[in-house]
């Protein structure tokens, strides 16, 4: 890992209009899927992005690749602001940054062979032609642990784990620097998950990739990541070295998340004290004022209502958490916008 930042997000926002379009615009609100994320991803590292469903982690991953338009903030990829990119430049970004999707049964076109799927980036970017292309496809298939002679087969002939390998081969075809894995192991069985996790780790080392590993599974994230970022309701609430975040979290939400992860050790499980959160995650269309976790936080106190906490260094070197328990730092809630738009 070098100290060089490959992807840098500043105040990134992805807001979706809710309610109807056309005649029903009167009812429209705003869904704050990603709501002010600052994040640096260093070249050659694996950053784990964890959070529960609806926290915006997938949307953020898509936004970093410009697959979802941002409504605010800026994203720099290798020093270039990509939020305004057009045409050829955006195509180049697509070559340099790939994505592995969750469901290996949906992410491969059922009507195209493995070779056609894996060679698509090569054709799109005019990287290889004819015999070279076939050789490169074979090389990619072997790289992900598949036999090169499966190239002519269709996706329905493969198991989930094999399909996911095909998906990874496609993402790697353009020799990207940056790979986003969006819940890439969530639909796989435990033993197959392990195969894919090991493969991703091996590829990351072998190819010097920068990896953003998005998952709801804290155990898998901690296993594969150098650093972990925790998202809650559209915001990164804690970030730091995997070891520190995974064993000594500083933000009450991370602590609750960590304590809710079931461990396969019966004795530990019996001794463990759980922080059981009450209630549900608020809707991203009605984000609480101040600290967005305060409605479920067991430690919430006065400043949490009014001051939106900023990330501040705390705990291990490189660890940051957005929590007033470590000192009240942040922007006071401004009533018109900061307060929820509850009907």
């Amino acid at each position: 890992m070098s100290g060089e930042v490959l992807v840098s997000a500043r105040g990134v926002e992805v807001h979706f209009p809710t309610g109807g379009r056309g005649f029903r615009t009167a009812q429209a609100g705003v869904l704050r899927a990603v709501d002010g994320v600052d994040l640096d991803i260093y070249r050659g590292e694996t950053l784990g992005l964890v959070g529960e469903s609806g926290c915006g982690k997938s949307t953020l991953g898509n936004a970093l690749l410009r697959l979802v338009p941002t409504t605010g903030g800026s994203i720099a990829f290798d020093g270039t602001d990509i939020t305004g990119l057009q045409g050829r430049r955006i195509k180049e970004l697509r070559r340099r940054a790939g994505m592995v999707f969750q469901d290996p049964f949906a992410s491969l076109d059922p009507r195209r062979t493995v070779a056609q799927t894996v060679s698509e980036p090569l054709e799109v970017h005019g990287l290889r032609k004819g015999r070279d292309k076939a050789a490169r496809v074979a090389e990619l298939l072997e790289l992900v642990g598949l036999d090169a002679n499966v190239a002519g087969r269709y996706p329905h002939e493969f198991s989930g784990g094999q399909r996911q390998r095909v998906g990874i081969a496609r993402a790697l075809a353009g020799e990207p620097d940056f790979l986003v894995c969006d819940e890439a192991i969530a639909s796989l069985d435990v033993s197959v998950q392990a195969q894919v996790l090991n493969l991703l780790r091996r590829l990351q080392r072998q190819l010097g990739l920068t990896l953003l590993f998005i998952s709801h599974d804290l155990s898998a994230v901690r296993h594969i990541s150098d650093r972990i970022a925790v998202m809650y309701l559209g915001r990164v609430v804690e970030i730091g070295p995997a070891e520190a975040v995974g064993t000594d979290p500083q933000m009450p939400y991370t602590q609750a998340l960590l304590s809710a992860v079931p461990l396969p050790h019966p004795k530990l499980e019996r001794e463990r004290k759980r922080v059981v959160l009450t209630g549900d995650v608020p809707s991203p269309a009605a984000v609480p004022s101040g600290c967005r976790f305060r409605t479920r936080c067991p430690y919430a106190f006065e400043p949490c209502d009014d001051v939106d906490p900023a990330l501040q260094p705390v705990g291990a070197p490189g660890q940051q958490a957005a929590c007033h328990l470590h000192g009240v730092v942040g922007t006071p809630a401004t009533t018109p916008d900061g307060v929820t738009a509850t009907p």
């Binding site: 000594d248 050790h265 530990l268 919430a300 470590h326």
Partner: peptide
Amino acid sequence: STAVSGTFGTGSPGTSGIESPRGRL
């Protein structure tokens, strides 16, 4: 399985950085 208890043990989350909020404040 033996090495495990060392790091996790009874480790109730939140024992480290955070005490009772009011107490700390």
